[in-house]
Simulated scan of single mutants.
Amino acid sequence: MERVDAPACAVGESPAWSALENAWYWVDIPARRVWRLDAASGAVASFAAPEMVACVTPAAGGGLVAGMESGIFALRLTPDGALDATLLAAPPTLGPGRRFNDGRCDRQGRFWSGTMCMDMGAARADGLLYRYDAVRGLSAPLAEGLVTQNGLAWSPDGCTMYLSDSHPSRQLIWAFDYDTVEGVPHNRRLFVDMNAYPGRPDGATVDADGCYWIAANDAGRLLRFTPDGHLDRELALPMAKPSMCCFGGAGLDTLLVTSIDPSAAGGGAPQGGWAGATLLLRPGVTGIPETPFGG
């Protein structure tokens, strides 16, 4: 296990591996920053965004696609450490106190992300899940009634979609049958009730065996569930609030894990140590290549 040589994040989220660049990306949501780690040199850089960036995914032609406060954006990194942001789509449900949250691409390169109310205490179940692609634009909501949308991932064949709600009042992970041609999920069903396990279900990824890795926020561990929903592995982590994990590296055998420092995020006593740190670890299994947006 290795700590990335980067400042701790208030809310580190959305690790993404760019095979094109041989680099990792992740975000610090309240800091409005996108971070980049060059896998070959170990060089770390950060880029200032004009508003909160909740999730990023590499684009096939370079740059990133991001879910932000006011919509879905194309991002280009500039040499002076800033981001050029171009609005791609904005659902009418966004506004003050709301933003996109977890997001990633399906196996066909369509971008998915959901909206949420930033006031977690309000527990408003009005979050919506959207799909965006360059040809059809922004979809109508394809899942409703979410408090804190999270946990998006797809099975290796792309035919199963996973989605979680990490709010303390929910703590559920669902699976859907997924139409890979039309990009539509259906047959929503309970995959894992995380109320029976330690931690809340935050961000997720899928490995080459089709197993679902979820960051157990508040429990300081990663949990690996088999495709039939059985827990078969736990990895203890040196921070209480891991937020998401992603496979990458040349052999797709490394997990990059982001985390949250609740004191820096505006809640709780100072934690220090590994709180908010970004780490790399090798779990002994490999991931599968993630399709970039438009790819």
Rank of each mutant, 00 (worst) to 15 (best):
P92R: 12
R98N: 12
V135M: 10
L280T: 07
F47W: 06
G220C: 11
E13N: 07
S164L: 03
D106L: 04
D193Y: 12
G151H: 04
R224M: 08
L138T: 06
A122W: 04
A134V: 13
L252G: 05
I288K: 03
V65C: 00
R282T: 10
S41E: 05
W213A: 13
A31P: 09
G229K: 14
P168H: 04
M68Y: 00
A48S: 15
R98F: 04
D193N: 15
Y197Q: 13
D232M: 07
D202F: 03
G272K: 13
L77D: 01
C245K: 11
P156N: 05
T291E: 14
D126G: 03
A89M: 08
F176G: 09
T291H: 10
T160H: 05
G67D: 02
G248V: 13
W35P: 00
H186A: 14
D126Y: 00
A85R: 05
P30N: 04
A134G: 10
L128D: 00
W213H: 14
P283I: 11
A277G: 11
W213I: 14
L152G: 01
L222Q: 12
G284F: 01
W154M: 10
P238M: 04
C211N: 15
V192M: 11
A277Y: 04
G151C: 12
A60T: 12
D38M: 06
G145Y: 04
L256Q: 10
D232H: 11
C246E: 15
A59I: 00
D193F: 12
Q271E: 15
R188K: 15
R76G: 11
N187W: 03
V4E: 08
L129T: 03
Y178L: 08
D228Y: 02
Y197E: 14
D106G: 06
D193P: 15
T258V: 07
S166V: 06
